[in-house]
Write a protein that binds this DNA or RNA. Structure first.
Lengths: 113, 113
DNA sequence: AAAGTATGCAACCAATTAGTTGCGTATATC
DNA sequence: GATATACGCAACTAATTGGTTGCATACTTT
């Protein structure tokens, strides 16, 4: 499905995943490069491992993060695609807005002329 | 406060506001330019006026939208600054990630050399 | 001034979320 | 093989969210 509603929903899920300070800092840790285990991602936070796990699942369900089990630990890594997608979406919104302002401005000018 | 935690929190609030399909379509309507009343923003949705109002308050609390009372209706308009801010934040994340990948790559190359 | 229109406020409800704890299981290590 | 480490699953709680309805209030229009 590529209809508008589906696109909105997909973007909304990603935004919602980013809509939490804890998850944003997990993301920040993951932008440092190497995949990291849940235990490692938990250290330094005030949360339980399970708490962090839940946040990671939210990120994973949104596709923002990807995990593979290696040995006894599961390594999480950032998945750049969805983030890039919503970034482009915001860029589109900004552009739309800018153009709309331009139109309004010229409309007003032609009226007052 | 400009400390990192505060920045994260601020961005998280904006992302959370964007994290709902209904709110994203409200935003889309507002990018068309002219400020719009609640009644107008409600028409075309399957929600109650009050439902839409609640979503608008969420957007307003996040600073993504601004409202002024004019006559008996309150006009909502898009406020581009916070959106631009989170867009830049995502750009920053992408860049960090890209650089980290580069570092890892050259590390691996130097190891296997 | 009466009727219609646009909104605000409050209460309420169902569903989701953020977080914990407890327990079981798989993998490493000694 | 025993111990320690890293994790998954399930249940539970408190708070938040998305949505409704009912009613009061403010502005417009005739």
């Amino acid at each position: 499905m590529l209809n508008a509603a589906t696109v909105l929903k997909t973007n909304a899920v990603v935004f919602a995943a980013l809509g939490d300070a804890t998850r944003l800092s997990l993301l920040a840790k993951l932008t440092e490069g190497e995949p990291q285990s849940i235990a490692r991602l938990t250290s330094g936070t005030r949360l339980t491992r399970q708490g962090v796990t839940k946040h990671l699942r939210v990120l994973e369900d949104a596709g923002v993060v990807r995990s593979i089990r290696v040995g006894r630990e599961s390594q999480f890594a950032l998945e750049p695609k969805p983030i890039e997608d919503v970034r482009l979406y915001l860029e589109h919104v900004s552009r739309q807005w800018g153009q709309a302002l331009m139109r309004l401005k010229t409309m007003i000018e032609s009226e007052t002329a």
